Simulated scan of single mutants.
Amino acid sequence: MKVISVMNEKGGIGKTITATSIAWILADRGYNVLLVDGDQQGNASKLYHVIDTGEFDSISGLLEAQLSNNINEEVIKRCIHKDNVYNKVKKDNAEGRLDIIPSNGYLMNTNIKIAISENSGQVLLMKNILKKITESEFLHDYDYVICDCGLVLDMTVLNILIATDLLIAPIKLGGFEADAINDLKAQIKNLEGFNSHIKVKVLFTMKQKNKPTEQIEEFFKNEHDMFNSIISRSVIVEKSTAAFLPLPNISKNSKVTKQYKSLTDEILEVL
């Protein structure tokens, strides 16, 4: 089981669309996928119509149960939601599956509880949760775990990063991208004592074709480990968020969906 996380500290850069699209495409290719919503806004959960789950049937329930050493298969089963958009529309003969650990506003309280806890394993909660999920007999053997992280390095995101194999850092050209990426890489370096193998790759999102952005693109390619795939700015993405549906469900053959399929190809090569 490989863990892929999507994070950057800048909003409006296609973070959630990236995580939810990759999860859908992997499941469509026959993999068993677990989508983890690590953002208290719960946007990834909303796109898959897993909402109003409350504090106990979400990522908060898992983290707090692990924090208090009260986690068991019943808690895990309650917090992993199989009833979602992907599993409803997939073909009967499709081999892949996509399950979701949702999030909601209660996650803010969970972050506080973890931060003030005296539990010595407070930064290893997600790593231990995923280990228990892997060992559970009643669950699918997940090939990939896709995590949509929040915008700040809170306790939930910290836990996710420590369990991560590949971190995708989306950026939109035209702002303070260099600072954001450098800050993120510095934060990852500080976690080397807990996770020394995490790989960080930068992804251009919402790209518009013009000379200034092409110049910035060249600069980034020289400074950072980049994906070759680039995600264009597209009205289809806006339609996806407006409809509260994952991008590949809105349009299977749009340019931007094909770009995410190309990105998925690269991810499979990296991992």
Rank of each mutant, 00 (worst) to 15 (best):
M7W: 01
M7D: 08
M7K: 12
N8R: 04
I13Q: 02
G14Y: 00
G14L: 03
G14I: 00
T16Q: 12
I17D: 03
A19L: 08
A19H: 04
A27T: 01
D28Q: 15
R29E: 10
V33Q: 09
L34A: 13
L35N: 06
D37C: 06
D39M: 05
D39T: 05
K46C: 06
Y48S: 09
Y48V: 06
I51V: 15
I51Q: 10
D52G: 11
T53R: 11
F56K: 13
D57C: 08
I59Q: 02
I59S: 07
L62T: 03
L63T: 06
L63Q: 03
L63C: 08
Q66R: 11
L67D: 13
N70V: 07
I71T: 02
V75A: 10
H81G: 01
V85A: 08
K90P: 10
K91N: 09
D92H: 14
R97V: 11
R97P: 01
L98F: 03
I101P: 05
N111T: 09
K113I: 04
K113A: 11
A115L: 15
A115T: 09
N119T: 09
N119K: 10
S120D: 08
G121R: 07
M126G: 06
K127S: 13
K127A: 14
K131Y: 10
E135M: 13
E137M: 10
H140Q: 09
